[in-house]
């Protein structure tokens, strides 16, 4: 919702007054202003709006430097991290966030993998059950013949059998 501000003289006067009042505060804030590390901590969570897929803290262009400057100014004004992020989204769109915001259609990006994981998990477990059942069949049918009872043979025995087979196939 946009309020149409008419630039009347008293508004101008008021703004000048405000600016004058704010200047010392701003200077004061700059003196003990946010450190580079504090700025980078926020910038790290944002993406450069013009370069593709480069986090704002790692981007070397002048434009990115200016954006880090914006973060610094906002931090100096006492904005919180979330407020700054919201400001960036309002200005430059959702793409500045490292992840789509959790709202509206964007939920799809989070839900689809979950659905696939759950679906895949269910399929896998039913599959395993089926394969295990058929396994029991087999031991029932062929248990007496060639396939030895699993727990009667130790792994070492099997290894020895394998070695023996190897030697034979060699010879």
């Amino acid at each position: 919702m946009v309020t149409e501000i008419k630039k009347t003289s008293w508004v101008a006067a008021l703004s000048i007054l405000l600016v004058v009042c704010l200047i010392p505060a701003a200077v004061y804030a700059q003196g003990s202003g946010p450190s580079d590390d504090e700025v980078n901590a926020v910038a790290k969570q944002l993406y450069c709006p013009v370069c593709e897929n480069i986090p704002l803290d790692a981007c070397g262009t002048t434009a990115c430097e200016q954006w880090r400057g914006v973060i610094r100014d906002r931090l100096a004004e006492g904005w919180s991290e979330d407020q700054i992020k919201e400001y960036f989204v309002a200005q430059y769109g959702d793409r500045v966030l490292a992840e789509p915001p959790r709202e509206g259609f964007n939920w799809v990006v989070y839900i689809v993998p979950m659905v696939i994981f759950v679906g895949g998990g269910v399929l896998f477990i039913t599959g395993i059950k089926r394969w295990r059942d058929s396994g029991q069949d087999r031991t029932l049918r062929r248990g007496g013949k060639k396939v030895p009872e699993p727990d009667k043979l130790s792994d070492d025995d099997i290894k020895r059998v394998e070695e023996e087979l190897l030697k034979r196939s060699k010879g």
Binding site: Y47, N53, P55, G93, D94, R95, V96, L97, A98, E99, P100, G104, F105, N106, V108, V109, V112, P113, I116
Partner: peptide
Amino acid sequence: WGVIFPNISELVTGQKVTVGP
């Protein structure tokens, strides 16, 4: 899914999104 979602999202909502780390 992460690779193709930004394109899908742009088709549906008209907004570009980043799917990042």
